[in-house]
């Protein structure tokens, strides 16, 4: 940053094989231009995304992580993306505890026909991360009101995370 360059966030995209990875392929086939910041890692299902992968991505220096899967109800494996929703909520909570802005993690639904939607979401996410700036782990961790609130909200969030969305 010292040389005055624009900050380009490094983002890991965990895309499921059936919908979102194909949406990204479709965006390519349709030549829908998008910022080059997302580096895609394919999994068979968004349900495969171990929360540890996300934390590892941040540990390795990613500025943001996008998990993308099939729309709820459209999962190739019937209902596994519902488990993704739960883990996503848990992860947000964990990130907050660690002092990482929760906006650095994003969950997107994109069907194989929605290349344009995926591209839009990528563009929005990149913009959002540019505003947030680089992940600056240590400096973000300081006891403040937000942290106190997060601790207060723990019980509630645990309960929410365990709810199965309709």
């Amino acid at each position: 940053m010292s040389d005055g360059q624009v900050f380009e966030p490094k983002i890991i995209g965990f895309f499921c094989n059936w919908c979102s990875y194909r949406a990204a392929d479709l965006a390519g086939i349709a030549r829908i231009k998008q910022p080059p910041n997302v580096r895609v890692i394919r999994a068979m299902c968004s349900g495969r995304i171990d929360p540890v992968f996300v934390l590892k991505a941040f540990a390795l220096g990613a500025d943001g992580v996008m998990i993308a899967g099939c729309h709820p109800g459209d999962c190739h494996y019937i209902e596994q993306n519902y488990k993704t929703i739960r883990r996503y909520v848990m992860l947000k909570h964990t990130l907050r505890q660690l002092g990482i802005e929760t906006e650095r993690l994003k969950l997107v639904w994109a069907s194989a026909a929605e290349g344009h939607i995926l591209a839009e979401e990528i563009a929005k996410f990149v913009d959002q991360l540019k505003k947030l700036g680089p992940l600056n782990w240590r400096d973000n961790w300081r006891p403040d009101e937000a942290e106190a609130e997060a601790v207060e909200a723990l019980a509630q969030e645990h309960a929410e995370a365990l709810e199965v969305p309709a």
Binding site: I12, I41, A43, M44, C45, G47, R48, I49, D50, P51, V52, F53, K56, A57, L60, H76, Y77, Q80, K83, R87
Partner: peptide
């Protein structure tokens, strides 16, 4: 799909071709 792999607290489940070490290495 691999959902069970991600959930196993003992890391006893592994997925052929989408194993933890493969995904981590890719990262």
């Amino acid at each position: 799909c691999g959902t069970c792999i991600a959930a196993c607290p003992a890391k006893a489940i592994t997925g052929a071709h989408f194993a933890d070490e493969q995904m981590m290495a890719e990262l």
